[in-house]
Nucleic acid binder design. Structure first.
Length: 568
RNA sequence: CGGGAUGUGGCUCAGUUUGGUAGAGCACUACGUUCGGGACGUAGGGGCCGCAGGUUCAAAUCCUGUCAUCCCGACCA
């Protein structure tokens, strides 16, 4: 590609609406442009990267035996109504009507459609197992689009679905996808971690996420360097870490604690430690109210709690007026004693003796409280958020935590959708049996952001060769020097003849501008044709994170072409 | 959906407090000088100041409403 013909409006200044590095760089490098909140256009450079990512995904999916097809994005409501997700997705789904007032949506994910396709076209056990996939634009009306294409409302997703006649078959199909995903993200040049995950709204039994560790990640992950355990915060199992009890060992006693609402205030007022206190939070679960208790220095894991309670809508904090009504006190004094709603207690609280709780009375707490003696929990379970330094649930060593960008997620769905929609197959014995499913997603456009987020320096993007928009750029230093431009054209043509994605900066710009743009858009190899071309010598340089202290290397023209070839 | 902020040429922003003919830098066009890390000079083009009402002799500026965008939280590839 000739740079003089390329739509590449690079920006010197950072657009004001970009916050994180990858978003800023993708805008500056003219990969994307914003059209609305969470809606982006891909300019030629961005599209090239997108297509390279898609190509890698296709190759690995095809190698794993999956078949590509393409579904519509505009979907009649029926399929989603049948599975119940028309309501479950609710506000997150873009819904619209046609001229006859019929309901449609823009597809947020396609379990229903793939399931229906198999129902319509596959009958016999002989045709299983089968894995189908597509790379397609998805639509989700996100509550808060953010960070450029990391969380956008229109995005490209690779979604795959496996169909098996047995649980063992599902395990096998799942493993194939798991392996393919590892190869894909390795080829994309991402530094990623596979974590156990909650299966959330998708339903089903097991699920894992592919996380790119990054400070701008939206998910918390806990991992152990010793045994390799890794899990999303939502899922990470917690191990009790008992702390010393308060010394006072008498019976439960009500104490006056004026204007003490928070744990911190309580700590300084009573001279106790946060872990001597158990906090009680009132939640609204569907149309019911429940209470949840964790130790004072812990946080409630709402995903675990929601799964435990089994509510279908979102679990949310109870409204303040309801807290007042249920506890007969101002917010901040809730406790389990005398509370007329189910109390879910974190298992760590069971290790506590003589602790302090709210007394359901303004400005009052109880001390010397003990489970069993003073109140009875509805349920005791793991409902807290894991913390850095907690014991690893597998090997007991201290756990580490990080933030991650979720680039892939794989699920064992089981029979959730096949049951709901009626996907069965006829077995050898002529009986009708239910198909078991898996589903496997990759946020394709999100991968671009993740790659940029992980690979950049103060000068711009540093693309891994596998997904770089161009593999090499040829820069004649002086556009008006014929010897230089001719030599540059020759190298460019040789690179192209060898099938290398090459770019030539044939613009009549000063060298500084060309160098800055080449760095910004992150081309892996830069070839500069300058003054020494008379001696048959050009320079080349690799774009790496160590750009500043890496030397350019002089070489003969032919050697440079060979070098670029060797980088692939 | 709660909390905070911002809307002025393609991009970054000043001007709003205290109403009085719309500004700068970058980008763009032409010419000239330059040419190894985002050059310089001269001359140009481009904005109903988010939108709609209102107050006023006069509104980017004051008032009301509305829309949009971003950030912080609850949700997800």
């Amino acid at each position: 590609m000739r740079m003089s013909n390329l739509l590449l409006p690079t920006l010197r200044e950072v657009p004001a609406d970009a916050e994180i590095t990858s978003h800023k760089l993708m805008l500056r490098a003219a990969m994307i442009r914003r059209l609305g909140s969470g809606i982006y256009s891909y300019l030629p450079l961005g599209l090239r990267v997108l297509q390279k990512v898609e190509k890698i995904i296709r190759e690995e999916m095809n190698n794993a035996g999956a078949q590509e097809l393409l579904m519509p994005a505009l979907l009649p409501a029926e399929a989603y109504q049948a599975s119940g997700r028309w309501d479950v997705f609710g506000a997150s789904m873009f819904k619209l009507k046609d001229r006859y007032d019929r309901d449609y949506c823009l597809g947020p994910t396609h379990e229903e459609l793939f399931t229906q396709t198999v129902i319509d076209n596959v009958k016999s056990y002989k045709e299983y197992p089968m894995t189908l996939y597509q790379i397609q634009t998805k639509y989700r009306d996100e509550a808060r689009p953010r960070f450029g294409v990391i969380r956008s409302r229109e995005f490209v997703m690779k979604d795959a679905y496996s169909f098996d006649t047995s649980d063992e078959g599902l395990d096998e199909s799942y493993k194939k996808m798991y392996d393919a995903y590892n190869r894909i993200f390795e080829r994309l040049g991402l530094d990623f971690t596979v974590v156990d995950a909650d299966s959330g709204a998708m339903g089903g039994s097991g699920s894992q996420e592919f996380m790119v560790k990054s400070p701008v990640g939206e998910d918390g992950i806990a991992y152990c360097d010793c045994c390799g355990y890794a899990a999303n915060y939502e899922k990470a199992e917690c191990v009790n870490a008992p702390k010393p009890s308060a010394e006072d060992g008498g019976d439960m006693e009500k104490i006056h604690t004026p204007n003490v609402h928070t744990i911190e205030e309580l700590v300084s007022f009573l001279g106790a430690e946060p872990y001597n206190f158990a906090k009680t939070i009132i939640y609204k679960a569907d149309d019911k109210y429940i209470a949840a208790m964790v130790r004072g220095d812990r946080e409630i894991n709402e995903v675990k709690l929601k799964n435990l309670v089994g509510c279908t809508d979102d679990l949310e904090l109870a409204e303040p007026y309801m807290v007042r009504q249920l506890t007969n006190a101002e917010v901040g004094f809730a406790g389990p004693v005398g509370l007329d709603i189910p109390v879910y207690v974190d298992k760590e609280v069971e290790t506590m003796k003589n602790f302090i709780i709210g007394a359901n009375e303004t400005d009052m707490h109880y001390k010397n409280v003990n489970i069993g003696k003073d109140f009875t929990p509805h349920t005791v379970a793991d409902i807290r958020v894991i913390e850095e330094g907690d014991a690893c649930p597998r090997c007991g060593k201290p756990i580490k935590t990080a933030l991650g960008i979720e680039v892939g997620h794989i699920f064992k769905l089981g029979t959730k959708y096949s049951n709901a929609l009626g996907l069965t197959f006829q077995d050898e014995d002529g009986r009708s049996k239910v198909v078991t499913m898996g589903c496997y997603g990759i946020g394709v456009t999100r991968c671009l952001s993740a790659a940029v987020e992980q690979n950049n320096d103060e000068n711009g993007i540093i693309w891994p060769v596998s997904i770089a928009p161009f593999e090499a750029i040829v820069i004649p230093v002086n556009a008006k020097n014929e010897e230089q431009t001719e030599a540059a054209e020759k190298i460019y043509n040789e690179l192209k003849a060898k099938g290398i994605d090459a770019l030539i900066d044939d613009r009549n710009e000063r060298p500084g501008v060309k160098f800055k743009d080449a760095d910004l858009i992150g081309i892996p190899v830069r070839i500069v044709v300058g003054k020494k071309i008379g001696e048959g010598i050009v320079e080349y340089k690799e774009r790496t994170a160590q750009t500043s202290d890496e030397k350019t290397v002089e070489a003969a023209v032919d050697d440079v072409v060979k070098f670029v070839e060797g980088k692939r």
